[in-house]
Amino acid sequence: MKIISIINQKGGVGKTTTVINLAAGLSQLNKKILVIDLDPQGNATTGLGLSNTDDSETTIYGVLNGSKKISETIKKTNFENLDLISSNVDLSGLEVETAGDEKRAFILKDKLLKYIDENSTKYDYVLIDCPPSLSLLTVMALVSSQSLLVPLQTEFFALEGLTQLMKTIERVRVNLNTKLNIQGILLTMYDKRNKLSSEVEKEAREFFKEKVYKTVIPRNVRLSEAPSHGVPVLVYDKNCPGSKSYFSFTDEFINQEFNMESVA
Rank of each mutant, 00 (worst) to 15 (best):
I217E: 00
P132M: 05
K179V: 09
L108P: 11
L26D: 04
V126S: 07
T77S: 02
F157W: 15
S245C: 13
N194P: 04
E160T: 07
E199D: 15
L38F: 14
S144F: 04
I3S: 03
T77N: 05
L234G: 05
N43M: 01
R222C: 07
A158V: 07
V89P: 01
L137H: 03
D124E: 01
P241Y: 05
A264L: 14
T59A: 05
L142C: 10
T138R: 06
C130H: 02
K211N: 12
A24R: 09
N220A: 13
I217R: 00
Y125A: 03
G100P: 00
T58W: 10
S56F: 13
E199R: 10
D237P: 01
V263Q: 13
N8W: 04
P218D: 07
V150A: 06
L137M: 09
D54I: 14
A264R: 13
I85Q: 04
E257H: 03
I7H: 00
T16K: 06
V89G: 06
D54L: 15
D129C: 01
I7F: 08
E102M: 12
M166N: 11
V233H: 03
Y246P: 00
D117M: 15
K32F: 08
R104L: 12
N239P: 00
L108T: 11
K32R: 15
M166A: 12
L176A: 04
G230C: 05
R193T: 12
E155T: 03
K31I: 11
S92V: 11
L159G: 00
N177R: 04
V233G: 02
A99Q: 10
K192D: 11
D124H: 09
L127T: 07
F247E: 14
Q41M: 01
I107E: 01
F249D: 08
I7Y: 09
S51E: 14
V231I: 12
T16N: 01
V263W: 09
Q41L: 01
S198N: 11
A99T: 14
D191W: 05
K244C: 07
T73P: 01
V89N: 13
L38R: 05
N220Q: 08
T178A: 10
V13Y: 03
N255D: 14
T46P: 07
E257D: 10
R222Y: 03
T154L: 01
L186Y: 05
S228N: 12
T250H: 02
Y246K: 06
S135M: 03
V235F: 12
Q9H: 15
P232T: 02
N194S: 12
S67R: 09
N181Q: 15
